[in-house]
């Protein structure tokens, strides 16, 4: 069954149509959200919720438009919102560790975490990419993922992010500059 037929089935209230759409789009959506949130569990929650919402709002999808871009816009927008809400706390967790993290935290007491330090020193390209992405703001990361991973154009990226095209350009400009420095050895 193709996507169009699955959407039509779903619009008739047949949940089997959604299963087809999940199989078609879940991996790309999960990967895009993971790149933005850097959190696999959160990415799963977001994508699952987005599929459930797609089920509930499928009648809003224009019959002439494909499901994929419509769904991915919703997913990326949810990831942006979730990251913006959670970034502050994630940052706090990373900086301060858990409640007893002043002693055992990876950052605040480097002496106790030699293994982690060594693993960081030994980190290869993937870890460097993760670190580089983590240093971007949520907005910059979302713009990078939308433009370079999902390969949306600037107008589409701006629509997802709820900002002007010029703002997207600005995010991308700063992200590229940051990544240029961070990934230079690559």
């Amino acid at each position: 069954m193709d996507e169009l037929a699955a959407v039509e089935q779903l619009k008739q209230g047949d949940i089997a149509g959604l299963e087809i759409l999940v199989q078609l789009h879940q991996i790309r959506a999960l990967r895009a959200v993971f790149l933005i949130t850097q959190d696999y569990a959160l990415a799963e929650d977001i994508v699952q919720s987005s599929f459930v919402r797609a089920f509930e709002r499928i009648h809003q999808l224009d019959p002439d438009r494909p499901f994929g871009p419509w769904f991915l816009r919703s997913v990326v927008n949810d990831a942006l919102k979730a990251s913006a809400r959670g970034a502050r706390l994630f940052s706090l967790d990373r900086l301060a560790g858990t409640f007893d993290g002043w002693r055992s935290g990876t950052v605040l007491d480097g002496r106790l975490d030699h293994a982690i330090e060594q693993s960081v020193e030994a980190a290869e390209t993937r870890a460097e990419i993760r670190a580089a992405l983590a240093k971007l703001t949520v907005q910059q990361r979302t713009a990078v993922v939308a433009r370079y991973y999902l390969q949306l154009n600037e107008a589409e990226t701006a629509e997802i992010m709820g900002c002007a095209r010029g703002t997207v350009k600005w995010y991308l400009h700063h992200a590229r500059r940051q990544l240029k420095t961070l990934l230079h050895p690559l």
């Binding site: 999940v22 696999y40 990078v144």
Partner: peptide, 23 residues
């Protein structure tokens, strides 16, 4: 950039993930 992002995402989100049972 596309390749790096794609490879990084593939490493962390395997192709055989199935969200359907939860959904």
């Amino acid at each position: 950039r596309i390749t790096l992002l794609d490879e990084f995402a593939r490493d962390h989100v395997p192709y055989d993930v199935d969200l359907w049972p939860e959904i």
